[in-house]
Design a protein around this nucleic acid. Sequence first.
DNA 1: TTTAATACCGAGTATTTTAATAGGAATTAA
DNA 2: TTAATTCCTATTAAAATACTCGGTATTAAA
Lengths: 156, 156
Amino acid sequence: MKLTTKGRYGLRAVVDLAVNADDEAVALSQIAERQGISMNYLEQLIAKLKKSGIVNGIRGAQGGYVLAMPAEEISVGDILRALEGDLSPVDCYELNSNDTPCNNSDLCVTKYVWKRISDSINDAVDGIMLSDLAAESKRVQAEAGITQINQPKQTC
Amino acid sequence: MKLTTKGRYGLRAVVDLAVNADDEAVALSQIAERQGISMNYLEQLIAKLKKSGIVNGIRGAQGGYVLAMPAEEISVGDILRALEGDLSPVDCYELNSNDTPCNNSDLCVTKYVWKRISDSINDAVDGIMLSDLAAESKRVQAEAGITQINQPKQTC
DNA sequence: TTTAATACCGAGTATTTTAATAGGAATTAA
DNA sequence: TTAATTCCTATTAAAATACTCGGTATTAAA
């Protein structure tokens, strides 16, 4: 029941992008360095975010990435689902219509549990907007007098 | 962000135990057969439940397992945490005091996300009691006229 | 027009985790 | 005494994860 590094690194990267976006595109190498994430790996994560319409890539020199929408309109749920796939605790047809139908559905009672968990997770993450995290991040960075992060290994 | 088979199989096994418990102990071989789970594997899962004080084992011939408490007093959260460990989405010291302290805690903003997810999951599963599932299971089994389940492979 | 900086793409790989299997020891009712 | 059962530990196959690597395409700036 853990997120993978895709969700953890990816969310940090998007928050970094939201915080460090002026009007310019932000190069992935900068995000990678600030966040202490391998750039090659981060490329794969940002590709998912691009595919989901959360960021836009700008090619060529001086290129980089920008948010595809105002941060106020991007929920943490949008970001995590883009990175991790659906956030339900099981692959269950009742929860997720792209899963294969389950031949035990009639007798299954645990499906009620999975539905409750799934709904509660999605409600939680859809209630937090990227702008909330970006504002908080700016606040704590200002308080600490930080411009460069580049932290050692983090668990979260 | 998926439960493992530990949580899925294990919860089904406990519901089965609650449904099929009269005053006798229920042999693991019976649960395994009804639920279509390898008995050897189920042994490992029930060991976790035993360690957490959810079931008691009765050794010897005619032995088996019984619930250690009335089903009304056992929450799905108790069961899933026994099987899966903590249900938080990340290993984060702020959420889970047995994790190693995180040196980025001051600047970390995603921790607010993880806390919200963690709390919502735990609230959801702590609000469902084993007795609820057992009652519903008896109801659907009666409706279908079923005594033996033994379903083919399930995803949930 | 060249160069350097960047996004974009797909294949390969080491490590870790999961999901079992297997074999035996201890216990106890019949 | 036997058979049924829990209990315990080690091993293993497969899958998923978390990367690395090498290249191509694009574009702003020199």
